[in-house]
Each structure stands twice: as C-alpha cells, then as structure tokens.
Write a protein that binds this DNA or RNA. Structure first.
Lengths: 262, 262
DNA sequence: ACCAGAGCGA
DNA sequence: TCGCTCTGGT
C-alpha cells in the first residue's frame, strides 16, 4: 500500500508539464524515502531525473518499494483535471496495476478521483554518479529560458562558455550570429535573481537548443536554475523543487563541427 | 563607421513590428542628421517612410552616408531578442556588409550582440514633396485602430469623409453597412486624446481597409495619428515618434466604383 | 485591473 | 490550423 498526500498539488502538475514532452512512458520508483523517476527522452539523447523526498509530502506512506509504470501523457491529462490549488493524493495497492489520483479542492467542496492503468515498462535505473564539475552557473530560470528561446530564433545550437567574469551563450545561423553575456552578479536584492559562477576551470560546450527549450519548460518550478558543466560529462540543468527535491535534465554536448544532424 | 545608441530601445522594436508585415526588405539610409527608410510594400501599393533624427539618440555617430539593406523579418527577429527596457546600439563599418545590434539590459548584467549580413537592395529613394492637404484629421491612434478593425469586419474599403463638423468612416459589405462619425473635440483634458479637424476643403476618399489595418500596427508608437487627405494625392497616415521623427504610410485612394480588385 | 500577443493543445 | 489559456505590457 502506498499513499502520498501533496498539499501543493500544482507542483506535481508543473513537473508533468515539464517532462511530458520529453518522455512518454516512465517508471515512478516509490520507496520509503520518496518518489523518483529516471528516463531517457524518446530519442535517447537526454535524460530526465526527478526526485521528490517523502518529507515534502504532508502524508507519505510506502510499505514496500514499488515501481509504477505510467504513460506520462495520460498522467498529465489526469493531473490537468486538478485545480491549481487542489490537494493531490496518489494511491496504489502493492499488487495492483492501478494508480488512483485524488484531488480535493481547497474548500473541500469538490473531491475527484481518477484511476489509471499502470504499464510494464522496461527501464534500466541508471546510477548517476554525483560528479565534480568544472563550472557551475546558477542564474534566474526565467532569464535562462529567455536566452534559449531568443537564440533558437537565430540558430540550432548554443555554445555555452564560462569564464570567471560570466557566462556566454552564442549561436550562429543563416541570418546571422548572436552572443549573450551574463555577468556574475550576486549583489542583487533577491538571492533568487543572482547569477553566480562557480568556476574551477573554464569550459566551452555546445548543445542542441531544441533540448534546452524542452528543459526550460520546467521554469515554473523554480526561480533559479543551475547549469553544471565539464568538458567530458553531460550538462546538468537542475531546477530545485522547494523543500522536496529536484528536477534534473542531462544532455551530452555536441562534438564540434558536427552540427549537421538536424 | 556608424554607431547609434538608443536608450529607449523599445521604440525600435515597435517600429519594426509596425512595418515588417508591409515591407520585407528595405534600405536604411544613415546620414549625420539621422536615420531614415523609405520603401514600397510588397504589392507596390503603399509606401512606408520612417525618420529618426539624430537628436533622438543618446549617442549618434555617422562618419559618412551609408545605405544599409536589411531584411526586415530578420532584423525583427533580432530585435525581438532585446528586452523592452534594453538600450539598443546599432553599429556598422563603412565598407562592411555586416550590421551589429547590441542590447544592454538596464542592470548591465546582460549584454547581447547580434550580427546580421546586409543585403544589396535596389531602391529608388523617392523625393516625397511636402504638400498642402485639403483636410488633416488628428485623432487618438487607438480610436483610429479600433475603427479600422471594426469596419473591416463589415466591408473591404472605407470611405473617409471630412466636413467641418467631423470625420466619417463608412463601409458597406454583404452583411450590411456602417458609418462611424467622430466629431471635432478639442476640449478633452489630454490634448493627446483630442480629435482635431483642419479642413480647407471637404474631402471624401475611399481606401482599402486591408492597408489601413496594416498601418495601425504602428499604434503603440504614438497616442495620436494624423490623416492628411487631398482628392488628388495619396493619403498620409502619420504617427509621430516622440522627440525623434515619424513613421508615415502613404496610400493612394481607390477610384470609386472600382472596388472589385481584392 | 484590463487588453493584447504569444504559446500550447485540440 | 484554429481556439483557448496564460503571461506581459499599458
């Protein structure tokens, strides 16, 4: 038996909005410590990792580890039926092949429950090592989203270069080229809006903007985003989920001079 | 060498939004006194004329006259990457075929530069004589926009008739007909919202609403618009750009009883 | 607080 | 491709 109650149900809605375009089916791994998901995107280029710790739930019960295979599009459809202020409860029986989503309106005047069939999904739960990164940039999530959107009107790939002074996003396309430089900037009133560069070594890596723009669908989850980069590791784009965990996206850099694959 | 710095960058963004649907390619003529553009729309029916005087820029340098041929759609894409509060600087070298747009965020924490290839565009720079008009109407730009939009849901052409009392906009279509009369009205608190008729002789002219609706894309540039009309001259629709110049649209009247051309 | 433009979903 | 919803600007 498994039962989670999440008062801030909109969190779950935002998480689904952020990943459902990238991943169609995935196993939710439930254990006593929390609720997690790992999945490659459909073209097997990017990896999505979600963690929601049990402490973030108002009520969390998980008698034994359970892997729930869900079609994320269908799950997303159901979560769209929850109001933004609704309390969401997720339930499943240990042996069953059904998950139940329950939505309670804040006033308790409307209680909905939705049942969804679970699926068998073969997935290798990859152990992702926590690595040291040559550079980590933290910046306002909205600004990162804007930069990725703007650059994709010019080109297909972005070169992210980190130096002590700041981070530079560059692209080039048929109509011209673009460089956007963000200075380190910690003096801002709100720490949420700071741009912080932790640089051990400068890096300069190239990524497909298409994936970046998918990742930034997670912008509503957090005020800030962090980009962790090393020359021989996948980029990690992380959105912290307040008091609960994170949503991370991993993307391998493009090898330079090989930008012709669509 | 040429370099303009425009603190109110949103002006340039609005200008581009206003003309890019009408004109695809145009030469920007730069001289020591300012920055201007003249171009026919793609169907060679309407003419767009822009003037931005050098005094309106915070910094303006133009060593020698330069004609920069730009694809306005591409330029517009780049300007969309500027924030509304950004300071925009435009730079070009005398011999080069490149123009650079630089955007500085108000906080100076984000600096972007975009490079665009210039094009060779053959254009006859027409000398447009300043004429005397039989009637000039000045009215709130938003009101004019609303009238053109409303009338185009009824008919394809508008008859603008000016008398001492006011200006009448009429149309007729399959579903019926419409007349909108605006009285002269200078008593309003804000002179911006006045409707002023300067009539030497009454006029009544017919225009294609399709073009009118394109022209009113310039509405965000100014609170008021002026319509200058004579029976044997093109209509001039002018939006003043505060302290800098104007954006004008010229459109020949339709000959009556010849409204079948789409 | 209202209106308009952009992005997303059907 | 059209309509709806959401976000941003006035």
């Amino acid at each position: 038996m498994l039962e989670f109650r999440l008062v801030q149900g909109s969190l779950l809605k935002k998480v689904m909005e952020a990943i459902k375009d990238l991943v169609t089916d995935a196993n939710f791994e439930c254990s006593s410590t929390g609720f997690s998901l790992q999945a490659m995107d459909s073209s097997h280029v990017a990896l999505v990792a979600l963690l929601l710790r049990s402490e973030g739930f108002e009520h969390y019960r998980c008698d034994r580890n359970l892997s729930m295979g869900m079609n994320l599009n269908n799950m997303s459809k159901m979560l769209k039926c929850a109001g933004n202020d609704d309390i969401i409860t997720i339930k499943a029986d240990d042996g069953g092949d059904i998950v139940t989503f329950m939505f309670e309106s804040p006033s308790q005047d409307k209680i909905s429950d939705f049942e969804m069939k679970l699926m068998d999904i073969s997935s290798e739960q990859l152990g992702i090592p926590e690595s040291e990164y040559q550079s980590i940039v933290r910046m306002p999530a909205a600004e990162f989203q804007r930069i990725c959107k703007d650059l994709s009107s010019i080109g297909d790939t972005v070169i992210i270069s980190v130096t002590k002074e700041g981070v530079k996003f560059s692209t080039r396309g048929d109509i011209g080229s673009a460089n956007i430089v963000c200075r380190q900037n910690t003096s801002v009133d709100k720490p949420e809006e700071a741009t912080v560069i932790e640089m051990k070594e400068p890096v300069s890596l190239t990524f497909a903007l298409r994936y970046m723009n998918s990742f930034t669908k997670a912008t509503p989850l957090s005020n800030s985003v962090s980009l962790s980069m090393s020359s021989d590791l996948p980029l990690v784009v992380e959105y912290k989920i307040a008091d609960m965990g994170y949503l991370r996206f991993y993307l391998a850099p493009k090898i330079e001079d090989e930008e012709e694959q669509s």
